[in-house]
Structure formats: C-alpha cells, structure tokens
Design a protein around this nucleic acid. Sequence first.
DNA 1: AAGGCGGGGTT
DNA 2: AACCCAGCCTT
Length: 358
Amino acid sequence: MLEQIVEPLLGWFGEHARILPWREQPQPYRVWVSEIMLQQTRVEAVKPFFERFTQALPDVRSLAECPEDKLLKLWEGLGYYNRVRNMQKAARNMVEFYDGEMPADYEKLLGLPGIGPYTAGAVASIAFEIPVPAVDGNVLRVITRITQNDGDILKQSVKRQVEEELLAVMPKGRSGAFNQALMELGATVCVPNGAPKCEECPLSGVCLAHQNGKEMDYPKKAQKKPRKIEKKTVLVIRDGSRAAIRKRPAKGLLAGLYELPNLSGWLSQDEVLDWLKQEGLSPIRIRRLSDAKHIFSHIEWHMTGYVVLVEELENYFGKDMLFIEPKRTEEEYPIPAAFSAYTAYLQIRLGQEKYDEK
DNA sequence: AAGGCGGGGTT
DNA sequence: AACCCAGCCTT
C-alpha cells in the first residue's frame, strides 16, 4: 500500500520544499551537522546555530581539533550537549579511519558516535543517495496515520516495522528527496498538536486514518511519567570586579557546562551566609532574588536565589569555584539556559542603594 | 525495555 | 499545563 505514496509525495515536495541552509549546499559534513542539530529540535531553532557552527567549524578536521569549551559555547542554548561531544568523537574517528571524510556507507555511519538509525539513514540518503529510510517522529506520525497502525510509536518494534515498510518502497535515485518529503509533510501538513491539514495533503486519498475520520487518534503513544521536582538555591556571588561560576561534572545533566554556584533545597538567608563562610568567603551584603522555574524533559528545577557581595578574593582558595570577570562569563563560558533568570545579575552594577534590604 | 538527556514553540 | 520536536546512549 505504501508504494502508492511515492509519486504524489515526490511531486508535492518538489513544489513545497522549504528553503533551508543545509539544503543549499548539501555537502555530507553539512548534512550531518544539520541532522545532529535537528535531533529533538525544531528547524527554526536550528537555523541560527547551524550558520554559526558551520562558519566556525567548516569541515570534519576543524571540528575534530576544536577545544571543548569552544565547542560547548557554539552549542550553548541548543540542549542535549552530548550531541556535540559525540559529534567531535565521530569527527576524530573520520580523521583517523576515513581520511577526514564522511563514509558513504549506512553501516559505517551507524557505527559512529551519536549516529543512530535515523541519522545514519538521513545522511546516507540525503548526502549519498543510498536507498535507506530515515524514520523520525514526523515519519512515524505520517505512516501510522496512513496505515492506521495502532502500535505504540515509542516501542522500537513499531519503529523497526515502519523502517521495513519504507525500505521496500524507497525510490532509487530519489531516496534523499523521499525521506525529506515524508518529514516535511509531517512538519508542515500532517502536524502534531491538533488537527492535521488534510485538505492540503497529497496523500489524503490513500490515508486510512483520514478515510475513517480518525486522524487525531494517531499516532498511539504511551503516557509519559511525571517529571521529578528539585528545589535549588542559586547564588550570584560577586566581589568588586568578578563573579563566581563553576564547572559541572563531566557526566550527567548539563555535563561539562558552567553554572552559578547552587545548593539543593531552598535555603534561608542565614543558611546561605553560613555556607559562604564555610567556603572561606566573607559576605558583606546579601539580597534575595526572585524565584524561577526551569523545565527539563525529565526534571523541574524550582529555584530561589540570592545575590551576595563578598570581600575581595585574593585570599580565596576554593575548591571548585572560578572567579571571572562578568564579560568573560558571557563570551567564553557556556552557561545553560536553566540559569538565565539569574545570569543577568552577573553583569549589573552592584549599587549600595539597591542592596540594603534587611 | 526503560530512563537520562535541553530548550523552546504550539495549542 | 501538556505535548512534542529531522533521537541517541546507557543501564
């Protein structure tokens, strides 16, 4: 049944394909960078990151040699930071084993860090015209609607089944366009969140869900577990000229990025002052900041904050804190968006008059 | 098979 | 507030 979608879909894509930076110059490296960035991330969010990243690191070798802080700075705000670390590992593999080139082979692509079945299929088909499917969330939605597949798309068995069905109908010489057309249709017509635009769809005539008025019932998806809530107290610690940041651990949430010093739980002003003294810092003034919330995919941070002025820090030999000029924290150190409610206080002038509450 | 891993746009 | 995005890796 899916063979019927190929021609109308390719025809539709020819007229409705969006103009995207990575489609203008589809070298394998640029296709790869775009596909990594597009993992769980919308096209509009990726565009400015893609331009900046490919200008700074235009090829596999420059990526392979880039220092980690610069790499994370280029990725700052995009999220899922292991993507870019894995991409660098893959680039180093390409330098070592493939003469600095992307391998034009599905299995070899699949063997590189950060490249799974979707990305291997996307790069293989778009950059090298290898006839393999690239099944992402869009494609799963489109195909389960067309075929009224009741399987839970979060299960890999369902994904494998869709991959097999599509592999059987891949058009030779047009696999890249076909895969992109499926995704484009999912992103712009067969949309999630509300009613799909079936009146614009080139496949409505063969879509079982549409024939039966069941578009909204697909895809089937198991319910997600609720997020865990974590309370935090975030500190903006400054002396006359610098502010405190620290590097997060190499593994886990926001690995390797920089952060404002913070403690778990909501601490009182006195508890914060005690902690500061314990750290070897001498607080002069302290003021409470407004509460803030940051939502990750699996955790919520419910934060409160304080800005603290401390004595000059020549005498500070703290374990993990760095005292950096505010301008440099912005230009050189990747600090994730979770702290955005408080990072502005790294920059503002600490006026006596703004301070003396309590 | 299940859970960890960001951030932001839509509804 | 819930959903979900051109997913992958570790456990």
